[in-house]
Design a binder for these strands. Structure first.
Lengths: 149, 149
DNA sequence: TTCAAATACGTGTAGCTACAAATAATGTAG
DNA sequence: CTACATTATTTGTAGCTACACGTATTTGAA
């Protein structure tokens, strides 16, 4: 459905204004789907993002700083997200012995196992994007990169 | 900057997976800018969205239902957003006499004046998107519409 | 008419965001 | 070595989201 119909707005001030709204709307649409897919595993998209970053480092630990740097949503509060993951025993947190200001965060086996299970399902989530051909997806990626110039 | 560098991830599983991340990341980037622009006026993007919908109806009132239907983020809780706007005296809320389940929400003069002031500034916000030509913006809009199929 | 279903809205809760401020450890200029 | 800046993280607060449930009102079928 065209964005004009989705939010029942006939006309936009400009193509750029329309773009701003279309981009936000489409990202929300996508996030809703990921949220749904993660729900059976009691993970939020942000927690999932942190887990994947930690797996990327495994078996090395990651600091809160490193996590923040790599998160999709950089303003997210990694500290509190790690708290939640800790409560679920998906990660472990220790003070870094070399720099006691830092925290070493590391996946547990339970966390790795969970991610592995989600991996399988998540392949299907991307299918929601397959309304576009691979070439169109590339083009969209390139336009988004350009947009942020 | 390419998305790979933004979140320091060298390679993605697929072009589609990259697209999902790029889309979310870019929308966050954009929202941050709008949030900044609105901050001097003590409005959040969602409150701003509601105000603009109400202006579209003015001088007619809008129900909570109508507002929700037209919001960019449809899961937003229009009821509570209207509360906040009411506290700032930017809107007024009365029970609809024809259907007492409904609420009539309407802009106040204060609300209209505020929007007018923001209108002027907001023209500059869209400039952040002008890294793309008009033609590229159209193409991006079209790809986003297709993506949601 | 009557009562169950549908509709419109409000509220409660857990989790997230944005931002500022606090705390603690480390680095560094003199 | 000391004072000060810097760095890494945590905490506090206001506002938003997602979802479920609650309340009041209206609609409509028997």
């Amino acid at each position: 459905m065209k964005i004009e119909e989705e939010i029942r707005q006939g006309k936009f001030q400009s193509e750029y204004h329309k773009l701003a709204i279309n981009l936000t709307f489409t990202a929300n649409w996508l996030t809703r789907q990921v949220t749904q897919g993660l729900k059976p595993h009691k993970l939020t998209p942000q927690q999932y993002n942190v887990l994947r970053i930690l797996r990327g480092q495994h078996p090395n630990p990651a600091s809160i700083n490193l996590i923040t740097e790599r998160m999709i949503d950089k303003m997210s509060n990694a500290s509190r997200l790690v708290d939640k993951l800790l409560a679920k025993e998906l990660v472990e947190r220790t003070t870094c012995p070399l720099d006691r200001r830092q925290v070493d965060v590391k996946m547990t086996k339970k966390g790795l196992d969970l991610l592995e299970k989600i991996d399988i399902e998540s392949k299907n989530w991307d299918d929601n994007l397959k309304a576009l051909s691979k070439k169109e997806a590339q083009e969209l990626n390139s336009l988004l990169d350009m947009l942020r110039s």
